[in-house]
Design a protein around this nucleic acid. Sequence first.
RNA 1: CGGGGCAUAGCUCAGCCUGGUAGAGCACUGGUUUUGGGAACCAGGGGUCGCAAGUUCGAAUCUUGCUGCCCCGACCA
Length: 449
Amino acid sequence: MRLSQYFLPVLKEVPKEAEIVSHRMMLRAGMIRQQAAGLYSWLPLGYKVLRKVQDIIEQEQNRAGAIELLMPTLQPADLWRESGRYNDYGKEMLRIEDRHERDLLYGPTNEEMVTDIFRAYVRSYKELPLNLYHIQWKFRDEVRPRFGTMRSREFLMKDAYSFDLDMEGARKAYQRMFVAYLRTYWRMGLTAIPMKADTGPIGGDLSHEFIVLADTGESAVFCHADLLDKAIPSIDTNFLGDLDPIVDDWTSLYASTEEMHDAAEYERSVPADKQISARGIEVGQIFYFGTKYSEPMKATVTGADGKDVAVHMGSYGIGLTRIVPALIEAFHDDDGIIWPVSVAPFEAAILNLKSGDALCDETCEKLYAELQAAGIDTLYDDRSDGAGAKFATADLIGVPYQVILGPRGAKSGEVEIKHRRTGERETIGIADAVSRIVGLVVPERRDTV
RNA sequence: CGGGGCAUAGCUCAGCCUGGUAGAGCACUGGUUUUGGGAACCAGGGGUCGCAAGUUCGAAUCUUGCUGCCCCGACCA
């Protein structure tokens, strides 16, 4: 993309409403625009990141055997009356009436609707297990939305729902999502730790929140330090096989959010030099809830013994519009964002320090064409601005690798490659620049391991 | 939902206390000179001072009501 042809409204000054670093940087980098409290437009740069996050989530959900569909944002109130939640949910749920005076609601979640789809078509235990997911906009009328898209009223969420004949089947479904989540966050460059979470009235141990450690996190968390560098299940993990060893390994070390924290157990099981007490951002939750919806909504299948049983369900959420700011909280410095390659809006940027100079223009055009031909998602800063402005913009929007070319280099046949994350700079012959960028970028995509 | 605060140019803000022709920096337009870390100079354009009522000869400024937004807390399947 040529920057002169793009829409990238970066801000030099910080809008006063932004408090935390990710919110400030999303506004400054021209990623989002607030339209009302808790409502945001995603501008091109922000939307590009959001799409990359979505692609990774879809790939890993599909790999784990979940099947994608799409349910509407508006739902009939009657479904929620069946489960009893229409009255229970409170003012967080946005209620709407259509022209025929039918009660609708803007969905805050989709258990009822997916259960309705399931019960309409599935009759036999032979059709199980089943896991259906979608990625759709949700709305919760938060009393106090804040921190930009970290806690907005309208938000994009991946929610998966598993259906199984019994508790044991549901446990396996849960484990598949557990492993898929480990891979999903890792692919985005995030270290997300599964922590014991509250299961409410259901009980049991089948609920985890996936937490990214960050100073600005909303909740206090406690965990064993070794969880921070545990190996991630590989791309050839067999999701139809036995996942117990992986899940057991990850859940054998102490990790808990504040609500479930057991201080005595923490002190007893975690050596003092391994104790991590920090703040964290919840970027996902997986949850087994049994027959909570299948019973009242009569989502049953006929078992091998000829008897009808209510299916055991679980739900598995990832907040996409929260992951983007969480990534920024995890990866930034004073100059701006530092995107991991796998979610970066552009993988490399070419900075033409003297647009209008014939040799600079010609060399940059050639590099741009070659990088694109090599499959690198490239931003070419061909604006007529000064060098300083180009450096500042590139650093702010966080492109992982900058290919910097000025009149000096154009003459001597060299470019400078700046690594955004480390600040490292290397000078390299122009002829070698493209293969060098490919060599740096491709392994960091994390899409083949 | 309790408490606090803010609303003036696209952005950050001054002016308000003590009523009298609406300002600065950045951004934008034209021009000249620049060009390796958000350039300099010259000349321009841009405002129902959030909305409504009131007080006054006169309101950005004082009063009342409303709306929107932010911060702290409570809340967060």
